[in-house]
Design a binder for these strands. Structure first.
Lengths: 208, 208
DNA sequence: TGGTCTCTCCACCTTTTGGCTGATACCGGT
DNA sequence: ACCGGTATCAGCCAAAAGGTGGAGAGACCA
């Protein structure tokens, strides 16, 4: 059996060390690089061409995880990427899957689950933590309530307290478009105001 | 120099592994136990009597970190406890310090910072990550930013997504009064819109 | 090819919110 | 008795948000 090369991307030193220590116990898995930001991840991926990238979505500064996934997959469409993050936010799950993530693990996953995800990823299998799977499942059962990737993106920014104008600037779209998206989001979430949307989003998604 | 015994408490396996790997590189620090919940932490502390307890505040199920700190310190008032967590929430910082934490580190802290905190803790020194320190400092310097009971009540309802009219009805006050309170709340929170106030409130206070 | 989804944009209009100024009343401490 | 903080209310005005209806471009799929 071939050794599976893995690139770790996380801005927390301890998390990288932990993953390295855990993965190091497996003979068939080798950590070939580490990165603490999206930018570094791209560089490291070009340099080491890892079979699997294990990536945290929440990176302190600079490019966020989703963007990094998109660029990684753009550069190498076969690149297997597993999201390894703390929260099972609906918006993040949708965006990550959309960006091309092969798996979605929570940081409290058992070591075996992580190993299985890495091994599965190289074979093209998707592995996700149980809470994540159940959320996705729920969403598939209620297609009306699924936010489109763009809507999810908007909602996520909404929870930061931005105005319509700011949302437009941030996403490079007009205020009119922002209002259109918001109207759709309100309808899907079953609320009438942005305040309620924010409250719902944060409570329902574990965003912060 | 004596070896410093450390107990790790975190529900994330990878974080424990990472800390263990990092601390293991230091000759004067030895991890003597691990726990993944508040309950386990108490047991382990009784068994191993560690010099320092490194504790995550957010534990999936059961007793939370704050409660665990209180009980640890109740059992052994000299027990040094360092909080090691992901978020610098105002509410958590205050509660942790109040419960008797000696230090407060964020998970993205540099390894050196962690070592320094552990060594400092056994000497009775408090060490905290820079963002944490600055938040505490701000709170101490600005007692103006404390919300009055009525304002806090309003803010709490605000995070449920109510309109000014609804807030008035719920609190049996006029809409004018609601607006007055809101203006004061915005000023104290340093925001301009209700959306930002909701976002700040939920993130600051760990409301969900 | 036609239908559906998504993302984008526009105009018009109503409602809500926020900024500003000012006012009354109660309570507690100096 | 005075002052500071809190809670209550009012009116005015500008800005922001929300509702309605419509529309074009590109992707994807049957």
């Amino acid at each position: 059996m071939n050794t599976i090369s893995v690139l770790l991307v996380d801005d927390h030193t301890v998390v990288r060390s932990g993953l390295k220590a855990l993965l190091g116990t497996q003979g068939d898995i080798a950590v070939v690089g580490e990165a603490s930001s999206g930018e570094e991840a791209l560089e490291a991926a070009h340099e080491h061409t890892p079979a699997v990238v294990l990536m945290d979505l929440a990176m302190g500064a600079g490019m966020d995880g989703i963007e990094a996934i998109k660029l990684l997959r753009q550069w190498n469409p076969k690149q297997a990427v597993i999201v390894f993050t703390t929260y099972d936010s609906d918006a993040d799950i949708v965006r990550a899957v959309d960006a091309g993530a092969m798996g979605y693990l929570l940081k409290d996953a058992a070591p075996e689950e992580i190993f299985a995800a890495v091994r599965g990823a190289v074979q093209g299998k998707s592995v996700m933590s149980a809470p994540v799977a159940s959320r996705l499942f729920q969403q598939l059962r209620n297609p009306d309530e699924i936010l489109t990737p763009r809507e999810a993106e908007l909602l996520s920014l909404l929870t930061e307290g931005l105005s319509n104008r700011d949302l437009g600037k941030r996403l490079f779209i007009s205020e009119a478009t922002v209002k259109t998206h918001l109207a759709h989001i309100y309808a899907k979430l079953g609320v009438e105001t942005r305040a309620a949307a924010i409250a719902t989003a944060i409570r329902r998604e574990g965003m912060r």
